[in-house]
Design a protein around this nucleic acid. Structure first.
Lengths: 339, 339
DNA sequence: TTGTATGCGTTATCAA
DNA sequence: TTGATAACGCATACAA
């Protein structure tokens, strides 16, 4: 087993000093031609590569960025992650992922762990637990230490930092407008309590679109689940009792379940009822009929988040200017709408 | 902005030596009661946490594990990752992810980068590019340096290391047997060239099951795509020209597309044709009808991989014994089979 | 009981 | 042109 070779080894082997080796390998002008060649040849031969950890310690820069997301088996987050990873990698950064599992405690623990020197900055989406608890001290700690932070998708105004979100309100607004243009009148919303920031905005867009079109808001047509767990019973009950001709769902999974259930009742999509769901994921694409979806452009979001973070990480000045980028949602039209 | 505090700061502030502080914080018996209390109080007040990087350098242990996977927007890999992450985290390890993007070059670059001190060991699934090129020198390098490596799912006999796989052959065998028990005779296989290790095994299982049941292998019923890209045309052509009453697909996506197409032809599932697909993902669960699937138990696989890796990382002896764990596939029965 | 010295692998400053 | 030394933050063997 050939252990990794260090400057010291090379120096000893070649009878020169460590600093000479270091300089030679950086092609410093200070070092004589032949010593340089000798050292470089030797280094190449033994495949010398500087130790990242030592360099991190010296530079106080790890070239690692920490990503904390609520879940990894999740199409949207995974898409954002891809955007982050691609950009970060291209910039020479590695990505350390921690999954908060929607738990406040795990989010805190992971963050504190990584904050002790492992990473140069954070990119994260708040866990449900954190949003529920409304406690952001761990984030404040981190930013107070001068560690750059970028929040995406699930954000909070409590923390001053860069943010990337999509215009959830507009996404919902556009979806509802689409329904109305189709002549739908009884438009339902299936939403969830947990995802405060996004659900709130989406519900707001839903309401605003109805009002702007002189339709009244019927609270009976708003189905609110406590979490994103699928409540099969709740869905069945809703659709057996309520008469609706269009449904906006804040996520794919509620929409898919609903579609299946109404289809089992012999109701036709989109003839009798239209569906639009947030987050253009695999299910939307492959359901029958395809689910018209509000695309969140996760990969772009990830890329932008990484850009913002690395920008801050590498900038010398301690700017106190934070920006929030708002991406435009796009409606991907499929078979579940349009009659 | 309050920068992170170090032992040195505490020492200076309290007028003691660095080593005294270090010992006091480790509750060493050597240090006097009052000094210890004073130091501990001060440290708590300023929320002292040791710097991970410094400790890594000292211990030559990073407590990071590197995970290299071909794709992150992928249900199976993401599931494995969850298993890895959970276990690793519980053991105090962080996970650095790199995505090879199915490319040999990226796999090599990422691996070499991480191998220079950033991680204590690797868990990975080979990229398609690597399997195609059949070049494993980067893996050999790493293991030669004594860095533990665990391969999962997409493995190679070329490298001596721990491995975790499912019995792909058996999964396919069982699926085909299920078809035969249903009385199916014209059983097709949709497969792909790229994933050598898994596709080969699955195809072998398919063939063996046919032979064991005295059915002849009709090469016309084997549809082989060059990659996992969906070739809509190819699928349509196949199903318009061939008469089949059962289909085993090496992935969900081919199966889903095929189901949709045959349904559009008015063929009934499972009455006229049965489907089974590998990788029990979201699509299988939510397609209509649900796709009977060969579950790969990704999370277990990830957990086992992490266990094996951490075991090796933390063991003192340089054992040269490598084991391969083979997980049993499970058939998840849904609506696409059983007539 | 406390402190000094050394080392982990690297780089940078300064001296020779 | 080369090398000694200090420093990054921490831990520990050894002195005092």
């Amino acid at each position: 087993m050939k252990r990794k070779i260090t400057l010291k080894h090379i120096a000893r082997e070649l009878g020169v000093s460590i600093s000479t080796v270091s300089k030679a390998l950086k092609n410093s002008e200070e070092i004589g031609r032949d010593t340089k060649e000798k050292i470089q040849a030797f280094a190449k031969l033994y495949n010398y590569k500087p130790n990242n950890i030592a360099i991190s310690l010296k530079n106080k820069r790890t070239k690692n960025i920490g990503v904390i997301i609520p879940d990894i088996v999740h199409h949207f987050f995974t898409t954002v992650f891809r955007g982050i990873e691609k950009y970060a990698n291209a910039k020479g950064y590695n990505v350390i992922v921690c999954v908060s599992d929607e738990s406040f405690d795990k989010e805190v623990i992971n963050m504190e762990l990584l904050a002790n020197g492992s990473i140069d900055g954070f990119i994260m989406a708040l866990s449900a637990g954190t949003q529920l608890k409304n406690d952001y001290n761990h984030l404040k700690e981190v930013t107070a230490q001068g560690i750059p932070l970028v929040l995406f998708d699930r954000v909070t105004p409590e923390i001053k930092c860069d943010k990337v979100v999509i215009d959830d309100k507009k996404g919902a607004y556009n979806a509802v407008t689409t329904f109305i243009r189709e002549g739908r009148k009884k438009i339902a919303l299936i939403t969830t309590k947990d995802y405060f920031s996004v659900s709130r905005d989406r519900a707001a867009g839903y309401r605003e679109a109805l009002l702007d079109n002189d339709l009244e808001i019927n609270e009976d047509l708003i189905l609110e689940f406590p979490s994103m767990e699928v409540d099969e019973k709740g869905i069945e009950e809703f659709f057996t009792n309520k008469k609706v001709d269009a449904v906006l769902s804040v996520n794919e999974i509620f929409a898919i379940h609903s579609m299946r259930f109404v289809q089992s009742l012999g109701i036709k999509i989109p003839e009798d009822i239209s569906f639009i769901g947030f987050t253009d994921g695999l299910l939307s694409k492959y359901s029958t009929p395809g689910l018209t979806a509000v695309a969140q452009h996760g990969e772009d979001m990830g890329k932008i988040a990484a850009e913002m973070l690395i920008e801050k990480v590498e900038s010398e000045e301690e700017e106190e200017t934070y920006t929030t980028k708002v991406l435009e949602p796009t409606l991907i039209v499929r078979g579940s709408t349009g009659n």
